[in-house]
Amino acid sequence: MRVVLAEDSVLLREGLAGLLARFGHEVAASVGDAEALVRAVEGLTAAGGPPDVVVTDVRMPPGHADDGLVAAVELRRRHPGLGILVLSQYIADAYAAELIERTSGPGGVGYLLKDRIGRLTEFAAALDAVAGGGVVIDPEVVRHLLTRRAPGGGPLDRLTPRERQVLALMAEGRANAEIAEHLVVTEHAVAKHIGNIFAKLDLSPAEGHRRVRAVLAYLRLRS
């Protein structure tokens, strides 16, 4: 796949470029700030070779705040099919939520902690999932969201421990078959759990990554 890479640390940018090449991806452009990211994607698109995925750091020049994330969201608004994988140092789910809530369209979305980069196969799988239109949220961020304890019984208290496990894996963007394999149960059992979860959370079951969006948005609202 064609990837545009945005990361302000030169050391890390070169490391990531090497890693992407190692997995057979083409790094179409590699930039160090949010404005250059927008220019690079627009330039490639105008030249007739749009990237499949943008891999970007959250915090980048010029503002050194969440410039990278904001630029990625804006690019996604202009190009609904563009996959976005955001790399971050922050567990705070406000960032993941900003990404999930402000992007729409068929393209995939991912929010990974930078810790995950060292686990190359996991990282490569997440990149593939995003390129394939899926949603991937870092397990650590999901766990943080799920273990959030609201007094007086949040919506999660209505779920059984097994259903929580299934929900966590769903939030990581896993398909039913993967969840079944991970929990050593049948796919049919997983489907049943998911049905229960949606019923207990008063959500309408939706296919694909929309269900992840729905679950995350719901959890953030209610916890």
Partner: peptide, 23 residues
């Protein structure tokens, strides 16, 4: 900011290199 741009990024780069070595 110094920790974010310095130590944290270097640790990520380190873990990336170790990941490649592992591979």
């Amino acid at each position: 900011r110094d920790l974010h741009d310095g130590a944290q990024e270097r640790l990520v780069a380190l873990s990336l290199t170790l990941g490649l070595a592992e591979l």
